[in-house]
Computed example of a mutant assay.
Amino acid sequence: MTSTYDSRTHDLEHSLVARGDLWRVEASTASSTSGNDNSSLFLVQLGPVLFVRDTTLLLPVHLSKQHLLWYGYDRKNGMHSLCPAMWSKHRRWLLMSMLCLNPLACSFVDLQFPNGQFTYVSGEGLTTSAFLPICGGLLQAQGQYPGEMRFSFSFKNKWGTRITPMVQWPDKSFTLSFSQAIAWQRSGIMMRPTIQFSLCPTLGGSSPGMRAELIHSLREDLNLICGCAATSHPSAFLSISFGRSKWNGNVGKTGIVVRADTPLSNVGRPSFSIQLNNAIEF
C-alpha cells in the first residue's frame, strides 16, 4: 500500500496491490482540489477470469503451456476483443496484445523481455523501459513516445565514481551526473556506502543549471537527504526517510518519507510532502 499527499497542490494518491497464486486485486485512486484530475482503477482476478472495474470481462478461450487467448467484452462501450498472449519456454519473454473486433484495431501491445519492456497503448503512444550492458556500463532508454524520452549510459571508474551522461528528448537537454560514495560501512560480509554525493550539471532544455545532493545513511533504515538546485528557479530540499524506502532497496514492511522544498528566493514559504510506504505479502 502506498499513500502520497502534496501540500502545495493538495493532490492525494492511494494504491493497493495484493496477489496470491490464483487471485489478484489492484486498486488505485487519485484526487486533486481542482476536481479535474480525479481517477480510479479497480481490478480483480479470480483464476483465469479477469474483471476490470464493473464494465470489462476477460474470459480464456484457449490455454496451453506457451499460448493463451482471451475473449474480452467491454459492456460500457459494447466492444468485443481478442487478447492473445505468448511466452517463451523458460518465460524469458512475454508478448500480450488486445485486438478490438468492432471496429478492427490494435488497442494494446505489451512486450516483456529480460532487458526491459515495451508497451503500446492506442491514443497514448509507446512506453519504453530497456537497458543493455555494454562496454562495462549500462545503456538505458526510458520514457514515452510521443512524450519525454531519456537515453543514458552509466559506468563506474576505478575510483568508484559513477558517471552517467544523459540526453532527454524532445527537451533537448544534456545532463552529466557524477555520484561518489565518500564513506563506507561493513554490513555482514558486504561494504555499503553511508555517505554519497552527487552532482548533475544540465545544459540546454527547459531547466538548465546545476543540481547537488548529499545522502547520509545513519542506519540501514534511516537516511538523511539534502540538496539544492541552481537552475532558473533555484530551490533547496531536505528529506528524511525511515524504514522501507528506495534508499535501502525497499527492505522492511513499513516506511515513511518526509520532504521539505523551498525556493531560495523566498525561504520562508516551504512546501512539504509525506509518503507512507507499506508492503503486505501473502
Rank of each mutant, 00 (worst) to 15 (best):
185 Q>A: 13
250 N>E: 15
67 H>M: 10
106 C>I: 12
81 S>A: 15
179 S>D: 13
144 Q>A: 12
91 R>Q: 00
241 S>G: 10
16 L>H: 05
214 L>A: 14
112 Q>T: 02
116 G>N: 01
88 S>T: 01
7 S>D: 08
241 S>D: 06
143 G>V: 10
46 L>F: 12
63 L>Y: 00
239 S>E: 15
18 A>P: 02
4 T>W: 08
229 A>C: 13
221 D>C: 11
167 V>D: 06
223 N>E: 11
115 N>K: 00
220 E>N: 07
135 C>H: 02
227 G>H: 15
121 V>R: 04
148 E>R: 11
22 L>R: 15
139 L>W: 11
43 L>E: 00
41 L>V: 01
238 L>I: 13
227 G>F: 09
7 S>C: 02
208 P>A: 09
32 S>I: 04
44 V>Y: 09
216 H>Y: 07
164 T>P: 02
16 L>S: 06
190 M>R: 15
179 S>Y: 08
233 H>R: 13
13 E>G: 02
15 S>A: 09
184 W>N: 10
230 A>C: 12
156 K>C: 12
246 K>I: 10
215 I>G: 05
225 I>P: 07
39 S>T: 03
218 L>E: 05
59 L>C: 00
251 V>N: 13
71 Y>N: 08
104 L>I: 10
114 P>R: 02
141 A>R: 03
223 N>D: 04
114 P>F: 00
128 T>C: 11
51 F>L: 14
50 L>K: 14
31 S>E: 05
161 T>L: 12
19 R>L: 09
109 V>I: 02
187 S>D: 13
19 R>C: 02
182 I>A: 12
120 Y>K: 00
193 P>N: 10
252 G>I: 05
47 G>A: 11
134 I>N: 08
84 P>D: 05
32 S>F: 05
77 N>S: 09
200 C>V: 06
136 G>E: 04
53 R>H: 06
102 N>F: 04
83 C>K: 09
182 I>Q: 12
71 Y>F: 15
111 L>E: 04
168 Q>Y: 11
265 S>W: 04
227 G>V: 07
259 R>E: 07
19 R>Y: 06
233 H>A: 15
56 T>R: 09
272 F>V: 11
